[in-house]
């Protein structure tokens, strides 16, 4: 098997795949795609890989896949022998997919604000920021009650799933879009937990958390 990731270093959606592949200890090649400023994701050669003109794209031997959430599910189902990252249980699968959809909403709000502020995209910044705050509020409430009910992650299993990977990057990068997480303490604590998953890796703007070792 040869996995190739068509990647932009500063993309949170590409980072989702780097993160899961790091956790699953998968080896892969990277083809850098200059999303900014060169807009190579709209170049002919790239559109032949993904007509939607979006990063990331992943090639596994001859199979070409796009959409970060779909690729997360593919990698987990194919390469995660533990079966924990994308569980087979129908109810849990539905839960995971529900949060994959939230992850897309986070992309269209928090990530859009970041693109507007950092990459000069012509988006409605205020609308994007408000949208992100609305989602973060719901996530904070969900995670706060989770802590009371013994649930550390977005979905009900007692371990993280691709839902956590999918939602994590643009939550962590929200301040680059002018979206503070000060009002979301449970969301902030969840980002600590994600950053303590064995095999976690960083990207520009996403820092490591302290260890939670020697708890006594």
């Amino acid at each position: 098997m040869t996995i190739t990731l068509y990647d932009f270093e500063l993309s949170g959606n590409c980072y989702k795949l780097r993160l899961l592949m790091s956790i699953l200890k998968l080896r892969y090649n990277i083809v850098p795609v200059d999303f900014y400023p060169d807009r190579q994701h709209k170049a002919d050669w790239f559109l032949r890989l993904n007509p939607f003109g979006q990063l990331p794209v992943l090639k596994d031997d001859d199979l070409i896949l796009s959409d970060s959430g779909a690729i997360l599910a593919y990698l987990a189902k194919k390469y995660d022998e533990s079966g924990q990252w994308f569980p087979n249980d129908p109810a849990v699968t539905a839960e995971v997919l529900r949060w994959h959809a939230v992850a897309d909403d986070i992309t269209s709000t928090a990530s859009a604000a970041r693109l507007a502020l950092g990459f000069f995209y012509d988006f409605d910044i205020e609308k994007a920021q408000k949208g992100a705050h609305r989602i973060f509020r719901l996530m904070d409430e969900h995670l706060w009650f989770g802590e009371r009910e013994g649930r550390d992650w977005l979905c009900s299993p007692d371990h993280p799933t691709t839902a956590d990977i999918a939602c994590f990057p643009y939550v962590m990068l929200s301040e680059e879009g002018g979206i503070s997480r000060q009002d979301y303490p449970a969301l902030r604590r969840w980002t600590d937990r994600v950053r303590r998953i064995p095999g976690f890796m960083v990207m520009s703007g996403i820092f490591p958390a302290g260890r939670a070792a020697e708890e006594s």
Binding site: Q182, P185, R189, D192, A209, G210, R211, A212
Partner: peptide, 16 residues
Amino acid sequence: IASSDDLPFRHVYQGQ
């Protein structure tokens, strides 16, 4: 400025 529960092991809370 925070709940006691907001400060678990090795966390840094952001307040104002």
